[in-house]
Design a protein around this nucleic acid. Sequence first.
DNA 1: GCTTTTAGGTCAGCCATGTTGACGCGGTTG
DNA 2: CAACCGCGTCAACATGGCTGACCTAAAAGC
Lengths: 169, 169
Amino acid sequence: MADLKAGVNQLFLREEELRTGMELLFYAYREFTAEPDEILAEIGFGRAHHRVIYFVGRYPKITVSELLAILKITKQSLSRVLGELVRQGFIDQQTGARDRRQRLLELTGKGVELERQLSETQRQRIARAYRMAGAEAVEGFRKVMMGMLDDEDRAKFTPPAPARLATKR
Amino acid sequence: MADLKAGVNQLFLREEELRTGMELLFYAYREFTAEPDEILAEIGFGRAHHRVIYFVGRYPKITVSELLAILKITKQSLSRVLGELVRQGFIDQQTGARDRRQRLLELTGKGVELERQLSETQRQRIARAYRMAGAEAVEGFRKVMMGMLDDEDRAKFTPPAPARLATKR
DNA sequence: GCTTTTAGGTCAGCCATGTTGACGCGGTTG
DNA sequence: CAACCGCGTCAACATGGCTGACCTAAAAGC
């Protein structure tokens, strides 16, 4: 009887624990994107533009197909926002040297500035959370988050050389 | 000189650390929603329907305004998906006893079944991540995630009585 | 008891961002 | 030189946000 009760209770706790995880992800993601979204709205951009700017800043000289592989959207969807960013001078395209079909993407000065501005609040939010939680908690956070990813995405974090560096350019 | 170098290196690590946090959130959220999205697409629903079903399941007899406060969308947006869910028999509305203007929302059997099906993959994903990372890591994960929230959302987790229980019904 | 506020719904239209499908151009490669 | 590939583009559609206007019925305030 006591055993049964303990079992039930454990199941309940587990259920609660899992729900907590789901909700933390939902709320955190929403608040994480809220502030940049406001800035973006002012200049007529959306979250999609932020993602492109972020990853182009993260991986300078990234090709369009590499970017597509990261974002996992169609090239038509990417094209819309990328085109605007290029036309408005936030991103530069240069023809690949080795393969002249490729467009290597890079932030302009203006692009770097916007990226910095957009990500600043997010960086602060994370930095605050890390500081409040402590180094050990951060390690746990990373472990759990990694565990949520599929192998493909997990690979982007583990190796000394991220996937793209293994790709011929 | 050594000090300077250490400082620079620490800054770099910090920058990398923060970027890692941002990206973990991006990838994890995307994969977290991918599987339910597929199921939803088959029955002509979208992610918005899932959110409504989830929170109605989580808080049976929740009112429309409480739901709006959680989701932080407009009532017109909610109305669209909630209406479909009610008409198709996934959610029941009953008039509030104390306040007859209120519609208390509840999942039907059909709704419970769909909720279970949708959340199952997410539960598994989280359970897997928790299991792989260990109890201590989970505690760290929770701490960091909580630190990312604004006070308002954080309050939903901390108290023995969630905000809605303090609300008169 | 009358007025105001509140809970909820509805119509209409706009926007951002995702999708599919088809097609074109130029560069690379077997 | 043919086939494939990287990239771009046109067109059409769906989802899910948004604003603004307007409605009913119930509750609350005076």
